[in-house]
Design a protein around this nucleic acid. Structure first.
Lengths: 168, 168
DNA sequence: CCAATGTCAGGTTGACTGATATGC
DNA sequence: CGCATATCAGTCTACCTGACATTG
């Protein structure tokens, strides 16, 4: 997964060592760099699993979200809000999912400005099949115990709260 | 920072609740999604700070890396290895940094295949100035205590080891 | 001859900005 | 009228693959 061969020393620990010789905040630098790398690991691991299904992580998340709703449908705007992505990215992602037959656009009953996105039966099926594999991959976090996984979620929740993702 | 307004409930906690009603691995899903979001937060925070310097996170990391070396120079390949990025990405990043005058390409003394990338005086200066601001931003992790920051680094190190980033 | 190094061309994804058509 | 909703065009970063020239 790394670009090259495994290094003989932890590159982040090494950077931290150098950083603290001239600057403050070496701990934050190390944590931030670790987050950047961990994201890459999770994304690569999940996308490797999703590739045979012709899905990316972003499109997979959209399908899962739609599958969670009662009617299997959401307005474009709501999707962007829940997935925390840009409105034009929603358009882009829904375009692709629709071309694959996994969702379809439907007019809203009362508000003709809004477009509803509805998951299709095919979309539901591929979500089920893909999810089995994603779970098996443990999102690339198989090295952590259940306790550590929860600890991680809890720590990162503080970061998300601080930035105003939601009102706790 | 979020795409829309803050939500009234933690979207990840909500996804976890729904996920565990039908599938296994809800804890890993929540942690993985938290990592994805945290990366976005860190990246956005740092890039906001770096924008006035006309630097991206990737280019800033390259400058910091070069500044850490004794001679202020590294072969392209080594840079990609240490930064864990693709060879063509190294070319791209060095192209831009060179156009900005922050690095320059130099031939290697003995191996004429390799290109050395050397940080310039201007590159060093902008690194110093940018770093002051980056430290002040705490990489977007200001909500965590020093202990929590280290805890985070430690947890994510396990993930990196498991994927073979380096030999511990 | 084979391996390593860096570059280039071309394709993909997703994010962003700014403008626009439509409808509340 | 202002505001919301979604789209479109165009730009950008970063990644990847495959090919290539040069050199060890």
């Amino acid at each position: 997964m790394p670009a090259g061969r495994p290094l003989s020393v932890d590159p982040i620990a090494e950077a931290r060592r150098q950083w603290e010789q001239r600057w403050d905040g070496a701990e934050e630098m190390a944590a931030a760099t670790s987050i950047m790398r961990a994201q890459q690991i999770v994304q690569t691991r999940v996308e490797d699993v999703l590739r045979p299904f012709d899905l990316t992580f972003a499109r997979y998340e959209a399908l899962v979200l739609l599958g969670f709703t009662r009617r299997g449908a959401l307005p474009m705007g709501k999707m962007g809000e829940r997935l925390m992505i840009h409105p034009t990215s929603v358009t882009n992602i829904v375009d692709r999912l629709e071309a694959q037959g996994f969702v379809r656009r439907r007019p809203h009953q009362t508000d003709r400005r809004t477009t509803l996105v509805e998951i299709t039966e095919g979309g539901r099926q591929i979500t089920e099949r893909a999810t089995k594999e994603v779970i098996a991959s443990a999102f690339g976090l198989g090295a952590l115990s259940e306790r550590e996984v929860d600890q991680l979620t809890r720590l990162l929740r503080k970061v998300r709260v601080a930035v105003g993702d939601f009102t706790p």
